[in-house]
Structures are given as C-alpha cells and as structure tokens.
Amino acid sequence: MTRRLLDSAETLSYDPVQEVDWDTPLDTDHHGASPEWSTLYGTPYWAEMTPEQQRELTRQEAASVASTGIWFEMILQQLMLRDFYGKDQTDPAFQWALTEIADECRHSIMFARGAAKLRAPAYRPRRLVLELGRLFKTIAYGESAYAAILVAEEVLDVMQRDWMRDERVAPFVRTINNIHVVEESRHMKFARAETKRRLAASGRLRRRISALGTSIAAYFIIDSMVSPSVYANAGLDVRRAVREAKANEHHKSMLRSSCAGLMEFLASAGLLTREATWFYRRANLV
C-alpha cells in the first residue's frame, strides 16, 4: 500500500506557493467557510447579524480552524518522526512517513498564509490544551497515535469538502481546501491501515486504553477548533456568542454527520468503548 501512496504523491501533489492566489487582495464579499458550518448558523444571534458580520465571522472561524490544523499537524509530524526513528530507510513505509511529514509542513505554511490573508490573528488552543498536546506527542504510540491522527484529519476533510465546492467561499480558501483534501486522502488511508495493523497485536486492556486516549485527544481537538476570540474579532458579544454556539443543535448535527464514517471505523476496530463514547458525545461526534 505504501508504494501506491508514494506513487500517488509523485503524480498528484500541489505546490501551494504556485497554486494559491496569494496576490489578489481579500474580497470581503466572500465567506471564509460555508455559512452552514459556522458555530452560530441557525441561532437567533446569526439571524440578527448583518451579511457583512456573517461573512467576517466565517472568515475568522476558518482561520481558527486552520490554526488548530497547524497545531495538530505539528503534533502529527513529531509522532511520525518518533515512530519511524531508527527504522529501515529503504522500507517504502519509512519513505512514505517522510513524504507525509513533508506534506504536513507545506500544509501548515499554507494554512498560516491563508489565515493571514483572512486578516486573522494567530489563534491558539488555550494553555492547558497546548500542554496536554505536548504530553500527547511525547507518550502516544502505536494505534492511539494513528487513530488520533485519523480523527483530526477526518473531521477537517468533511468540512473542507463542503467549503471547496461552495462559491460563496473566497476562491483562495477553496483552493487551499482542495489541496488539503486531495493530499490528506492519502494520509487518512495510511492512518486507517496503521491503526488496524497496530491493533492486531494489542490485547483487551491496551485496546481500551488506546480507545480512551484517542477519544480524549478527539475531544480537545474539536473543542479547540473555534477559539472564542473569533467572536470578538468579528465584532460580536463574546459571552452571548459562546453561549449560543454551545447550545447550537445545528452545528452539533453537522459535526455528528461529518463523523459518521469515522465512528463506524472506530467501532469496527474496537475503539468505540463505553468510556471513549462518553468523550465523543461531549465533543458532539456521536
């Protein structure tokens, strides 16, 4: 499989520096993401906002999602480097790991430039989550590492497939999303295969521990995707926006729908235990 992934990377990869229109000024008549994916879409607050405010909010939310993507891609790169450290360099799997890491570096730079073009600040997870991420990248291994990678990539994938097809979204953002979707499809195939392969050698206790660790990682990834600061930067009342976003059943439904395939895979792999399901429910993924 890894040889096929390497061949695919050689024939279907993009250079964001060349592919993305970085020079055209931001057109504020466009959204940064499909409005239906906004955390406030369908709420009374959304109905009160002007179209300009709605567009600005989706631009800030898209930048926050991109920033969260950068944070987890940095964790991902370290997990893979640690996993393949000292292994056979002639193995296609080793070479694929380095290819994926190179992809993630380019994606992170692309996301950073995209967020800057959206006129957004550097959104970061809160300090506790940053430190938990530091711990996770240090201790996660085997199936728990690859399953967590899969969770992060699958959630972004469904969102971005919607955004890249939506003509209301800024053209340069759609290009970024398209690049990420195409290249991440290979990463997800590898993560699924590695998760299954590592689980084949795991016992019942290890499987339950891995399931719990993956679900906790998923909770913090989803919880960090949209920073509360986006509401202030969109000129909204932060307290009201956070309150209505947390109660927004439409957004919760979008998240659950986006993760249906992922949850099916985790269940088939034995990683959807009762304890893990509690965290997935908290993250609105089931």
Rank of each mutant, 00 (worst) to 15 (best):
L5D: 01
D7I: 11
L12W: 08
P16E: 06
V20S: 04
D21I: 09
E36S: 15
S38I: 12
L40W: 12
T43M: 09
Y45G: 04
Q53N: 07
R55G: 08
A62D: 05
V65Y: 12
A66H: 08
S67M: 09
I70A: 12
D83M: 00
Y85G: 07
Q89S: 11
T90C: 00
D91K: 02
A93Q: 05
A93G: 08
F94M: 02
F94V: 01
W96N: 09
W96F: 07
A97P: 02
A97V: 11
D103G: 10
A112Q: 09
K117H: 13
L118P: 06
V129C: 04
L135I: 15
I139C: 02
S144R: 00
E153A: 06
L156E: 11
V158D: 11
Q160V: 02
D166C: 08
E167A: 09
E167T: 11
F172W: 04
I176N: 01
H180S: 03
H180Y: 04
S185D: 04
A201C: 00
S202F: 01
R206D: 05
A211F: 00
L212M: 05
S215P: 10
I216A: 12
F220M: 05
I222F: 01
S224Y: 06
Y231W: 07
N233Y: 00
D237E: 08
R240C: 07
V242K: 03
E244G: 08
N248K: 04
E249Q: 14
E249S: 13
H250S: 07
L255F: 02
C259K: 04
L262V: 08
E264Q: 14
L271V: 11
T277F: 01
F279P: 01
N284M: 11
